[in-house]
Amino acid sequence: MIIDVEEDRLFVISDLHLGNPASTAAARVLPFLDHVADEGASLCIDGDGFDMLQTSFKRLVNSGVPVLAKLRRITGNGGRVYYVVGNHDLVLEHFLDSVLTLDMSPFLNVRSGDALIRIEHGHLYDPFFARYPDLYELATHVAGLVLFLKADIYRAWTFFADKADQRRRARAGEDITAASYCHGAAEMLLGRGFDTVVFGHTHNAEHVQMPSGTYVNCGNWLRGHTYVEIDHGDVALKVWSA
């Protein structure tokens, strides 16, 4: 298990959900991966890159194979590809490990410049996943069936999820650590000596200054196109616009 790595330049993306009917990442992410390869940088897919809970084999192959080719291009140009396992791709661990030259990991501690950065998918801190993992998986499967009937339902789901998130943040007020479970978890990890914590999972791209450091969420590529760029310890949340 590789958890401690050193990288000067590392791009981080998460939640592509390749194969999911609601995901539009398959075509849009390819130029981004070319960019990473051209830069000679490394890439970390911070969980839920491939979706095994809400997909069909045909969809997964159609959207996954071109991405796998691009990942090979990154490693061919001298970069490394790290794959941090999320909750939608747990069962793919051995498959990905065997077909690609990539490093599978449950989380990464990245030393870049003078900074120590934790990269983790973040689902372990999701109260629903932590308390009721079986129910969570069942609910995800059911939601997947609905997405097969009407993929646009994802847009409605994000609308209501955003509203709930806004209410939670309003209740938290000035206490940024109480604004979401991710903020609380990030602050706990920052207290262990990390300068920056990078999560995915929530699909909400954000860059937040916490009391003990910085919390960044990669967002998603289902409909979004955000990524995190780590350059000699500097961590920036960016929007891919090519």
């Binding site: 958890i3 449950p106 989380f107 501690n109 372990l124 978890a185 990890l189 262990r192």
Partner: peptide, 12 residues
Amino acid sequence: RRDPTFAVEMLH
């Protein structure tokens, strides 16, 4: 309980 990755890091 709150930070399960800490156990993995200790074992590592």
